[in-house]
Design a protein around this nucleic acid. Sequence first.
DNA 1: GAATAGCACTCTCGATCCGAGAGTGCTAAC
DNA 2: GTTAGCACTCTCGGATCGAGAGTGCTATTC
Lengths: 345, 345
Amino acid sequence: MPELTERQKTLLLLIIRDYIESAQPVGSKRLVEHYHINLSSATIRNEMAALTEMGYLRQPHTSAGRIPTEEGYRYFVSQMMNQAELPESVQATISHQFHQSRADVDQWMTLAASILAHQSQGVSVVTAPHADQAKFKHVELISTQGRQVLMVLVLVGGEVSQQILTLAEPVSQERLSQTASRLNGLLAGLTLDALAALPSRSDALDQDILTLIVQDMRRMAERPSGEIYTDGLSNVLSEPEFAESDEARRALRIFEKHSVLQDLLARTSINSNVGGLQVLIGGEGEWEELRQCSMVLARYGVPGLATGTLGVLGPMRMSYARTIPTVRFVAGLLSNLVNDTISGE
Amino acid sequence: MPELTERQKTLLLLIIRDYIESAQPVGSKRLVEHYHINLSSATIRNEMAALTEMGYLRQPHTSAGRIPTEEGYRYFVSQMMNQAELPESVQATISHQFHQSRADVDQWMTLAASILAHQSQGVSVVTAPHADQAKFKHVELISTQGRQVLMVLVLVGGEVSQQILTLAEPVSQERLSQTASRLNGLLAGLTLDALAALPSRSDALDQDILTLIVQDMRRMAERPSGEIYTDGLSNVLSEPEFAESDEARRALRIFEKHSVLQDLLARTSINSNVGGLQVLIGGEGEWEELRQCSMVLARYGVPGLATGTLGVLGPMRMSYARTIPTVRFVAGLLSNLVNDTISGE
DNA sequence: GAATAGCACTCTCGATCCGAGAGTGCTAAC
DNA sequence: GTTAGCACTCTCGGATCGAGAGTGCTATTC
């Protein structure tokens, strides 16, 4: 990319900021009038032509104002990335909401999704913390009726799985508790691999349950992320770029077909460290479904133990100035919560 | 409502069926041509005028075809209510999908929502089974780090709640297990009221946990329904009546503001028995948000133990012929699952 | 040489108009 | 009771058109 003069930089940022607010192509005249610039519209036009030439702006049609290209948005984002901060008062409000809520992963995720959606006016996604490597922590067996048993499996890192088992024959709660207790002593802290390599148990029930635990842990380990929480879906329809329902439907689909979402989140998680934000603009050539959209994503949690992803999807025209600091702040908050509660051995 | 002649009945049903398919006002000529009727268009016109007079049909404007009124839809639904059956093959497919899935309430709900949305081309809602009266079944305390403890609380009926507690001081896993075991023996099968009336425990930790259990159970009891699952949101946008995003946004909001949904589900649950369907057309004057929509709702589960609601929301023009039997069938299926697994004491 | 004023040109957008088509209600005849 | 015929109404899509906004280019100014 060629070098930009100081004036071009200010102009470019101004144009993009204006377009994000107004959703209208911005012309030279409007620019001069709204922001008192010491230049004539003709000069602006020349500069705009240059910026268009360089690929930061484009015209929807020959004689209309300019709108940013993806490249333009990228420049815009890179400029504001480091400076944007959430106002103290908003930070305080959000923190307060979290400390008000029940100490419960489910609630946190819901709250985080709600805050993100509300602040950014976009659609939010939050995945529950997920361990990179599944480690056994605790199992509980609760007899329900006859041969049915509810198994609650807890992993190091805090993930919990419930499953209903059907045993070959009825077993008393007492025997179930003994089995659970034996297995808890034996398996505590073991990884999935270690579990699978364990020699068979002599007790048939112990062995059955062990097999089921391994199965269940494998299933959890295979999932690329924890449960997905989302909020603000109706915000999609407020944006003019989604006025025609075709585009809007495509955007909604992304959130219904979890496969795309999983893929997206999984791939971004590789590139971004905890604390670092990632902004995807226009699908980056990778995701056809996101061609018209941008996403601001961040990873949170304790690396090596349990991490999750959170982010916001909006039109390319989304308010980055508001979204970026919010995502960053909420990611930090969740990281702290994860660290404080479910981290230690 | 005045009496309808046999001919008027057939005509009315025909018109509504056609409108549901085509989404276009249906005129007398079209009717004669598409369904070979032994009548002239003029006769049909007379009958249509009569049906309009009686309030079953209306005209969007003076010289257009007829579309059903809410009253018309109600008549239509009442006629098909008892006859509609899901084809054997579809029944088999759905049953198969359920038996393929993991024995896990979460999966069942997700699957049910997915099937309903897919079959009806509408938006589905399913609530997890919820006990009418909370009864304690089992508690488990798992030490995580320092003063943090994960409490898993299981109610009779299968509801599970997880919560992270922060104790006043660190407690060993051993002591936690003993406390849990003592409480399990003491509290098994007790209702919330019985729990609250219990005398204080001498052991401080036991007492603390007991208090927290009561708190948590109260919270669960206060919720009018279990967790809400939903699917098919993007289907909303396929329907022509939601083409202008304003209407569509309103419909989407219903699903984001859980309060409306809770209210809706809670109220319908009172009127409908397990096995009975309820069809709400046009909000029935109660719900402004649903003015343009219909809902097909059913209650499932084991009355007195645990029940939930499931249903489909769509435009008033939704395919009742497909939706009604599907909702009925899935409700039956879920009832069986609830009965088979989590019912017994 | 950079900035500016002026100007001709282009393109969109909304308003308006118009005719085709679909559908109706009514009347008179069967 | 049914039907054919007819005049009438209303919507919808396409065509037309002018206002307005914005541009690029050129000639001029500082």
